[in-house]
Design a protein around this nucleic acid. Structure first.
Lengths: 321, 321
DNA sequence: TAAAAATACTCCATAGGTATTTTAT
DNA sequence: ATAAAATACCTATGGAGTATTTTTA
């Protein structure tokens, strides 16, 4: 046969606490025979004597005490489940699986998480870095709760909110001829060697499209990450397009890289937070996305935390004298 | 409202394990709608989304996983209760509260426990030392499971088995005139100062009765335990009657005490193991008592463990030359 | 005799079943 | 068209009640 009933365990602990069937029954808001029969059923079921008649009352046997101890543990656990659920009705709690695309994760994920934790202190974020395709896949398969990725989010199962406008900057070595200008135009790219990320990164496609339109000479030499690409740029192998969010890190003072904005076009990628449209927590995610958008748009907080800053306030944008 | 059902928790862990309602239902030997509705009820009850439709199936949310983890803990606990009960149907297990009277506990309780643990390895004996009256009281109140005490056991609620015949020996300093004899008679006690335990010890009454019958001069000077009395005997303050079971300890070589048996009468106390007549474990106790009687009657095991030996094999009984 | 627990029985709430509909591939 | 889950509805087990009997101080 199966396991005992939660009810029976409740009766058991009540009985253990009161040592008196009538009293225990009252404490459980049931009649004396109800508790009596349930305890005896539990006894039969477990094959252990829980009570023993002594005088005109009963006492709980030592076995009964030991079992009551276990029962208490069970009830504690179930109560924690209830408690957990209760707190989650007002906000998120427990594990929350968040991932970002590799060209955004190192620069923005920490701030995203910070906002989430501030709003929902009970969450235990579990982070990952996934390329757009597998991120969408994992997200729709409900193996992930939130994804930070570049627009467009081409998936009908997903709902999203743009949380950050991320203009591209031209990144080059300070000795580059264009570094003398305070801003560049797309025309300046003609004839330049633009280094690209390896296949699979959405950023690669975006940069590629831009280069094709202006006639730059784009090349891809196994750039596994933006950091690697920047190493190559610093070595003078070529230039690249860097999202503004990455600039505070990759073009930091001493990195051997300077960035320049485009004056003619606003070449940009949009970063969005995405979640399953039909997730029960969708409203909470929507609210969170708005908070995150506000946070990422706030320059003060950006300068306040230099390592993650999406605003190129501290990176070297001044023309070389 | 109350707590979730054990059944619901079983369904939850099955669902978490299979990630598929039909499969989980089959694993629980119930129909698909049954599991489905129960899960949804649990969801409503906890206020947490456990599943989420994705494609033509469902997935367990991260909250669901966390809850399933808790549920697993609950089921583990209840299973342990079942397991515990199962093993107790064949033998005793868990806490077993055992007590002995103070004049027997130091000398015999260890061996009693050894037999119990050998027969029922799962028991966790919880020991105590109580004078006869409170021992019987505690035993009948079911706050104690087994009691080792002297006969007679005058209580109709209790069943008992004599487990040890414990003849009295005369204990004295080796320089005492009677120490030169290899045995003594009750006549030898006439005029002797016999030291007694303080009030409340059954042994006191037994010794007292014997003294009265022969005309010894018994005195009681705050002998709180047999060990104390023996200290006084060794100091030459008087003699005393020592149960055979206590001799290996109290009259050990170097204790300053020698013991002599009585040749004319077999003055003796009988030690019995007692338990509640209507205890569900009564048959097991009965069997245990027989095993203990056999063990205590066995001289070989007595000599094998000198500190607890009831047989005065190693204590000084030889006449002083 | 009175107080406590066990027993006898009755009832209904609900877990579980079958049949069907909805949803998505 | 098919596979999976949700819904509708019905059935019956068993938890809980009231009334009564047993037990014991």
């Amino acid at each position: 046969m199966g396991r005992p009933t939660i009810r029976q365990l409740e009766y058991l602990v009540a009985l253990d606490a009161h040592g008196h069937i009538g009293r225990a029954a009252a404490a459980c808001f049931v009649s004396q025979p109800t508790l009596s029969t349930q305890i005896r059923q539990l006894e039969r079921h477990l094959g252990v004597a829980i009570t023993e008649r002594v005088g005109r009352g009963i006492v709980v046997t030592s076995a009964g005490h030991a079992l009551a101890e276990r029962a208490r543990a069970v009830l504690r656990n179930t109560d924690e489940m209830l408690e957990w659920g209760r707190s989650s009705s007002t906000g998120l709690n427990g594990p929350l699986r968040v991932a970002a695309i590799p060209t955004a994760a190192p620069y923005l994920l920490a701030r995203v998480i910070a906002v989430i934790r501030k709003r929902h202190p009970e969450v235990l974020p579990c982070l990952d870095e996934l390329k757009a395709s597998s991120l969408i896949e994992t997200l729709t398969a409900a193996q992930l709760d939130l994804g930070l990725m570049a627009m467009p989010v081409n998936n009908n199962d997903l709902e999203h909110t743009v949380v950050f406008e991320d203009p591209f900057l031209l990144a080059m070595t300070p000795r580059h001829r264009l570094a003398r200008q305070s801003a560049v135009t797309t025309d300046d790219l003609v004839g330049e060697t633009v280094l690209l990320l390896e296949d699979g990164h959405c950023l690669r496609c975006q940069v590629l499209k831009m280069c094709r339109s202006v006639g730059a000479r784009e090349v891809s030499k196994g750039g596994a990450s933006l950091a690697t690409i920047c190493q190559m740029v610093a070595a003078g192998i070529g230039v690249t397009l860097l999202p503004t969010s990455a600039a505070p890190i990759e073009a930091r003072r001493g990195s051997g890289i300077v960035v320049r904005p485009f004056s003619d076009v606003t070449a940009s990628r949009q970063l969005a937070l995405a979640w399953r449209r039909r997730s029960p927590a969708a409203p909470l995610y929507r609210e969170l996305a708005d908070l995150i958008a506000a946070e990422l748009a706030d320059p003060s907080s950006g300068t306040a935390s230099p390592p993650d800053s999406p605003v190129p306030a501290k990176c070297d944008t001044s023309p070389v004298k």
